[in-house]
Design a protein around this nucleic acid. Structure first.
Lengths: 119, 119
DNA sequence: ACAAGACATCGGCTTCTGTCAATATAGATG
DNA sequence: CATCTATATTGACAGAAGCCGATGTCTTGT
């Protein structure tokens, strides 16, 4: 792991921007945030997020997630990787099983950007 | 609460789901919401949204938006169409010019889904 | 050590998406 | 009507993304 400036995940950079309606984003800011939205902009991944997030304890085992879809195991693994690399999910390997856990801060900062305005 | 699949835009259907962390989405629900996220999951479109949203008066003319990008006019027009059809922008033609305006309700319901938790 | 199970990675295929050039449409103006 | 200007539509193409089967990597149990 390097110490360069590019270490932050999209989720960590999302908090850097004012809400959409406050001031226009620069192209650089937009490109920082977009990976987060791209990660959520797939029905399988969005549902995976909700399956993990709504789980009691806030975490879910991949073995359970596989059964919720009519997709191959590599495909689910691929989607979980995308969510993890975007910074939306934390990964925790315990024995043979892998548990994923949502990062509430990532979702919160994204929601704030989109427009969680108190009005 | 769940509507039929008639004429609602993605923005209108987004309000039908509990927050991600409340209960797992069905595949049908996920597919209803995803067009909204897909519409935002492009750096040009996300920036277009912020340019319109942060405009005084809440609306922007396409002629102004074109100048903010190093892209062809048809490309910008295409992106505006995507945002409009997702239900994120309202379209208003006045004379030769076309003005777009954000639909705050669309952004708000999406933010609520993602996780605008009061904590 | 070996086998089995859980998950990840790889290589390919197909479908989707962003972009542009060319063209169309529609309103304003002379 | 003819023309100019603002925006939309069409068609084509390159690159990205989702999917699967095959294979690799750990870890556990025998």
């Amino acid at each position: 792991m390097s110490n360069s400036l590019t270490v932050l995940t999209p989720a960590e950079t999302a908090a850097c921007c004012a809400p959409l309606s406050a001031e226009p984003l620069t192209m650089a800011q937009a490109e920082q945030v977009v990976p987060l939205l791209k990660a959520l902009a797939d029905p399988v991944r969005l549902r995976l997020m909700s399956l993990v997030a709504s789980r009691a304890g806030g975490e879910a085992c991949v073995c359970d997630l596989n059964e919720a879809f009519d997709l191959s195991q590599p495909t689910i693994s691929h989607h979980m990787k995308v969510l993890h690399e975007a910074g939306l999910l934390d990964r925790d390997k315990r024995g043979v099983w892998v548990y994923y856990r949502v990062r509430p801060q990532a979702l919160a900062s994204l929601a704030a950007l989109i427009g969680c305005a108190p009005q």
